[in-house]
């Protein structure tokens, strides 16, 4: 959300600014101030600084979100083993407690910073900023942020990352995108993990999971993967390579790369709405 260009003015609140401007007096003389700022503007400001910092160092940053136990760390281990020799990878791990995940990643020979959030259910842009002090971004091509395992809260906080990847393990049920729409709407790729178990689970249909994802108007690719058997990992690495290429193209053109759904999404609302008013039939 930007507070300077007016992108937070949507069809729903435009009248507030048009009626009597930003400042007015109530009948009993009190001061009423129309603000129209994102409620998380402090976080969003820090996220933007993080993003600029990543872009100066040409590091593509991927926010990995899912339930606890869906296999984020196992997928990262398999990813590092396979593409670590070609790409310099770093990981920021978010958990309520323990260094266990960071230790697993370090055992694969890549830098990993553990953020322990205590009781906080998500990472925010300030926590990621603090973790960056301990990472040498100049040596990285790709940084994964493994968010706190939670299908609700992490989706509301911009970290300054470029892409969201949401994992759905086959033991969780194929209707999770319908049940947790905010999280799955934000996915730039949905990974169906532990796919090796599909042969013994008769109640998870990948096509159904994809159908629920499309119901959220989300065109993201859906990939079945198994960190254990390596099934589908080639497609996952292909997606990462494609996003790295896209990122470098954006950098070359001086354009920032944002996740498809981001807090500044209302800029798009306003533009689409104005366009629709001007050309109602397309």
């Amino acid at each position: 959300m930007c507070d300077s260009c007016g992108c937070n003015v949507t069809p729903g609140n435009k009248h507030l600014l048009e009626s009597n401007g930003k400042l007015s007096r109530t009948p009993d003389g009190k001061l009423a101030i129309t603000v129209l700022q994102g409620l998380l503007s402090e976080n969003d400001r820090q996220a933007q600084l993080n993003r600029e910092h990543f872009d100066r160092h040409r590091v593509l940053v991927i926010n990995m979100m899912s339930s606890p136990g869906s296999g984020k760390t196992a997928l990262l281990e398999a990813t590092i083993e396979a593409i670590g020799p070609e790409l310099n990878i770093g990981v920021i791990e978010g958990d309520l407690e323990t260094e266990r995940d960071a230790e697993r990643i370090r055992a694969k020979g890549v830098p990993a910073i553990q953020i322990t959030t205590g009781s906080a259910c998500h990472l925010d842009a300030h926590m990621v900023h603090n973790a960056l002090h301990q990472l040498d971004l100049g040596r990285l091509d790709l940084l994964f942020i493994e968010n706190v395992g939670n299908l609700v809260c992490p989706a509301s906080f911009d970290l300054g990352h470029h892409r969201n990847v949401t994992l759905l393990s086959v033991t969780e049920g194929d209707d999770k995108p319908a049940k947790y729409p905010v999280m799955f709407r934000a996915a730039d790729a949905m990974l169906i993990t532990k796919a090796d178990l599909l042969r013994v689970l008769d109640d998870f249909q990948s096509a159904a999971a994809e159908h629920y994802l499309r119901n959220l108007a989300n065109p993201a690719p859906v990939l079945e993967v198994s960190a254990k058997t390596r099934q589908g990992l080639t497609a996952w690495f292909g997606w990462l390579q494609q996003e790295l290429q896209r990122y470098h193209q954006y950098l070359a053109q001086g354009k920032p790369l944002y996740p498809r759904i981001q807090p500044q999404g209302q800029a798009a609302h306003a533009a689409v709405y104005v366009n629709h008013q001007l050309h109602p039939n397309g």
Binding site: T10, L31, I33, T34, L216, P263
Partner: peptide
């Protein structure tokens, strides 16, 4: 989030993800 008229899933959100501080009275 599919179209209420033709049922197509390829839609663009016009509103519904707002999280805004609208106004304060001091």
């Amino acid at each position: 989030l599919v179209c209420g008229v033709c049922g197509n899933w390829q839609t663009t959100l016009l509103s519904g993800d707002e999280l805004l501080l609208e106004r304060v009275v001091l």
